[in-house]
Structure formats: structure tokens, C-alpha cells
Nucleic acid binder design. Structure first.
Lengths: 242, 242
DNA sequence: ACTTGACACGAACGCCGTTCGTTACTAAAA
DNA sequence: TTTTAGTAACGAACGGCGTTCGTGTCAAGT
């Protein structure tokens, strides 16, 4: 507030210097956390860079000092979600039950977070939590005598199945979120299937009610059980030929 | 070109009436066909309303007279792709081989068209071609003695698996298209996995080379065989208890 | 000729991911 | 203490998206 000895008044045609608010500090953790909150509340379509930045009281460009791009953000969020998956203490007598439960828990964690599982389609999930879950999965399969090559592929393939089912379920949640009744959609589909010309689509017309039966979760468990049954058969065969 | 009797000259400050080119005629079929071409050449990200319209020599808004929205366009394109799937003449002695081949052919058709399979995640594919393939699938499963409820769910669940694998494969094609070498990506992943701390990730570190083994197609067939094995087991059990 | 409904289409809306250039801040070096 | 260098913060803008609105054109029916 001390005037310089040789200070001259500012010319009146100059724009006064804009008051700049204190810069807030960001971090990757904070960004991921807020993105996760938006995801939980409104689904993945709401997770834009601008939206996350707005929730943080800043601009989208500020996020780029901490994350490379949106893909990276989604990967980080995905791994955070996988962090909710509990991992069991391996028990050789219950490996089958345990690995099935681990896959169910993975599905449940993903299903709770809209279609974040889309992130897992096409990339190898390599975050710390994804690695933790994969390691536990593989250890259980190996414990059960599943051959190594089968273990290595099963983690990939069943993981893909888990993710696909989570995405599938999420689409219906999003539909509800958008004010559209999923039940109405399924009723519509059922009606359509039932009314298909029986001469061209006899099986579909006949089985239409069964196709509408059961929740997405039940279908997931059904498919998972098929996969596990196949894995068990491979383990048994490996023991027989050994 | 006949001047009106009381015609007065046009004031010179008026903009001359713009020459309007002949209106081109559009149709849903043409729009879908062009979208499919763009998809094949450049992947699904290139399929925007503007892009399709540009290829047709018009504006994006013109497409909305024939299709409700982009989702509908993609569904129509999806069904066109499924139209490439050949359907076998059912043979009771070879139902297992035939239904497996039908799923493989479905995967192949989708895999040839980038990640159009994303469309099948979350909606029930109900276009004429999808119905055709579903009917054939269900008829084969039923032929093999698979219980009806299992048939009804298997079409859904295995179809989802087929689509997920097609999406997964497509992501790597897109990566290549974007100038990034998928092989380099996998090498990087392999190196990372091999170098994981063996005390925390013993199984992953040990099996890393096996995880990189095999193509996406091989993994798909591996997983499909697990599913089919499970279905066969259910058919056998149904016969035993009948 | 006039009316009506459907199609064609430009302009614009609201949104997106990202880059570029500028400013602010802080730690290290001079 | 001042200067320098590097990094974080952030507004403006770029190029793009899906879609709607309003206007004009066209063809069929009255």
C-alpha cells in the first residue's frame, strides 16, 4: 500500500487488472473421486471432463495437468470400482465355489456403477485393484487343478463375460434413469416376440415367455455356471490324463 | 420469362434468389447402406450423422425424415451385418457342431465390421436377420434336447458373449487404424505383467507368457467351447432325468 | 388453383474432448 | 535477493457431435 516515489496515475482507458481468485489445488485422486460420484449418481454419460471440472469448481482444461485424457480417467475410475471386490482366502476344498463367488462379486461391483464396465472391453485392466482380483482368480483356478493355459485364458474370457453382463444390465438402469420404464420395454419385446409369424419363427414364438423370464442377474449366473462347468470339466480331464 | 404488366425493377440491394439444386431423394435403405460402407472402411467412430449425410451429398438433418435417431441407424446397420450370417439346415446328429458353427459365424460377421456389436449390448436384437439367426440357434439347441428355459437363456447369454468378443477384437482393429501397433501394445502389457512383483503377484508373473498366447479368435473359441460344454451337460442331464 | 402432408435441408442449440497460450506459483540456482 | 525454469491452473477456441426448428419444395388430393 506504499506508493512508489515516482508512481504516475494509471491512464483511465486501461482495463483494470482482473481480480484473480486463489488457485485451487487439484490432484488425480480428487478428480477420480468426483468422477466416481458423478458416475454413481447419473451414469457414465454424465462423466464428461467439463462436468467433473464443474463439480470441482474449475475448468476442463485444468484436469489435463493430472490425467492424460478422458480414457485414462475412465480407467482410473474403473480400477477404483474394482477396488470394491472382496478377495477370499483360498481354500482348496472350495475353489470352485470361491472363484464363482469372486466373479459374482466382480459383476456386482461393476453393476453398481452403471456401464463403467465398458472400459474393460478392449483394454487389459492393469490397475492395482484389477491385478489384485486377477491374481486371486488365477490362484483359485490353479488351486483347482485347471491347466495353466486354461487359467490364463479363463481370466480374460470370463472377465469379458462379467463385464459384458454388467454393461448389459447398466443399459437398462440408464433407460430407467432417462424416465423410460424398463418393464414396459420388456413387455413390448415380449408382445412382439409372441406375435411373430409362427410359420417362420415357431421356436421363438413358442419360447417367448421363457425368454422374458428371469432377471439380468439370473442370466448372468446361468451363463457363469456354464463357463465354470466347462472349466471344471477341463480340470477333471487334466487330472485324468496326468 | 414474361414480364408482368406492372413489373418494377428489383432494387439493387436485394440478394438474388439462390439457385436451389434439385432435391435428391433419400431412403432408409440408402442411408443404411452408406453407413455400412463408412463403418467397413473406417470403423464405427466415423459413422456420424454428418458423415453419412456428407457421403450422400446432403445435410445431417435430412436423415431424420427416414430414421428416428442415430441409435436407430446403428440398429439397422447391425441387422444388415447379421444378414451375412449363414444359417444351416438342422441335422439332429450334428446339432452341437452346427450351433457352435452358427455362433462362430455370427462372431465372424460382427468381427468384420468393427465394433458394431456394441449395438447388441443392452438391446434385444429384433431386426429380421437377428430373428432369423436366433430362431435357427434355438431350433438347433432344442433339437439337441436342451431344456426350453436353457434354450431361451442361452440365446441371450451366448449372444452376449459373441458380441462382447467382437467388440473386444474391434478395439484392437481400431487401435491399428489409429496408427498404433497392437503388437506393441501386447508386448508392453506382457513386459509389465512379467515384471510384476512376484511376492504379490506370483501367479500372474508366472503365467504372463501364457496370457499373451493366442489370438482373440482362439480365446473366443475357447470360451465358446466352455459354454457349449455346459449346454451339452445340461442337455444330458435333462435326458437322464426324463 | 388451393390445401395438405411429407420430405429436404440450413442454421442453430447445447454439448463434447482437447489444445494453445497466458498467468501464477514455487523451488532451485545465481 | 533476484532470476530462472518447470509445472500447475485455466480461459478461449478449435473441430466435432446429435438433434431440433423453421422454411421451402414437391406431389397428391380436392
Amino acid at each position: 500500500m506504499t506508493a512508489a516515489p515516482d508512481a504516475v496515475p494509471e491512464p483511465p482507458w486501461r482495463t483494470p487488472r482482473k481480480a484473480v481468485p486463489a488457485r485451487r489445488q487439484l490432484s488425480r485422486e480428487v478428480i477420480v473421486e468426483v468422477a466416481l460420484q458423478v458416475l454413481r449418481a447419473e451414469g457414465i454419460d454424465a462423466v464428461s471432463m467439463r462436468r467433473v471440472a464443474t463439480e470441482l469448481g474449475t475448468g476442463a482444461a485444468s484436469l489435463y495437468a493430472h490425467i492424460a485424457n478422458k480414457d485414462e480417467l475412465l480407467e482410473l475410475v474403473f480400477d477404483e470400482v474394482v477396488g470394491e471386490v472382496p478377495v477370499p482366502e483360498p481354500d482348496p476344498r472350495r475353489w470352485q465355489e470361491q472363484v464363482t463367488q469372486l466373479w459374482k462379486d466382480s459383476h456386482a461391483a461393476l453393476a453398481r456403477h452403471g456401464d463403467i464396465a465398458r472400459v474393460a472391453l478392449g483394454t487389459v485392466p492393469l490397475g492395482p485393484n484389477a491385478l489384485r482380483v486377477s491374481e486371486a482368480t488365477m490362484a483359485l483356478l490353479r488351486l483347482g487343478g485347471v491347466p495353466d493355459q486354461t487359467v490364463a485364458w479363463a481370466v480374460d474370457v470370463v472377465g469379458l463375460f462379467v463385464a459384458a453382463n454388467a454393461v448389459e444390465g447398466a443399459v437398462h438402469v440408464d433407460r430407467q434413469r432417462a424416465g423410460r420404464d424398463p418393464r414396459a420395454y420388456f413387455e413390448q419385446v415380449g408382445r412382439y416376440l409372441s406375435e411373430l409369424p409362427a410359420d417362420r419363427f415357431p421356436t421363438m414364438a413358442a419360447l417367448a415367455p421363457l425368454m422374458l423370464q428371469g432377471s439380468g442377474e439370473e442370466r448372468f449366473v446361468f451363463g457363469l455356471n456354464l463357463l465354470v462347468e466347462g472349466l471344471v470339466a477341463q480340470a477333471d480331464r487334466a487330472r485324468t490324463t496326468r
